[in-house]
Amino acid sequence: MIINHPLLGPRDAAEFVYLGDASLMDRPDGMTASDEEMHDYMYLRDNPAGEHRELWYHEQGDRSWLVVTRNTLTHEITMVELARDVARSRGRSK
């Protein structure tokens, strides 16, 4: 696979490490979250046959975490974003 890095252009997937569902970015605050919220964040993921937003880490490159939108049936990649930008757009800050 080739991942079109937003800063570095097309790079081979072998340079990246896969983590999983991009929902892993939505970590609740441990001081305010209920047990259920923290449990669901930790353990529950969707497993879609089709479009999937997922986290990849450019470990053999610039160490960017990316959110890659990939079709799990065809491996077609339709969008690649810097995870930091996505995190901010989801309201994460400090």
Binding site: V17, L19, L24, M25, R27, L55, Y57, E59, R63, S64, W65, L82, A83, R84, V86, A87, R88, R92, S93, K94
Partner: peptide
């Protein structure tokens, strides 16, 4: 790797 994840994805600012 995990610290970079926390830095970029959890607390980007």
């Amino acid at each position: 790797r995990r610290m970079e994840f926390a830095r970029q994805c959890l607390w980007p600012d």
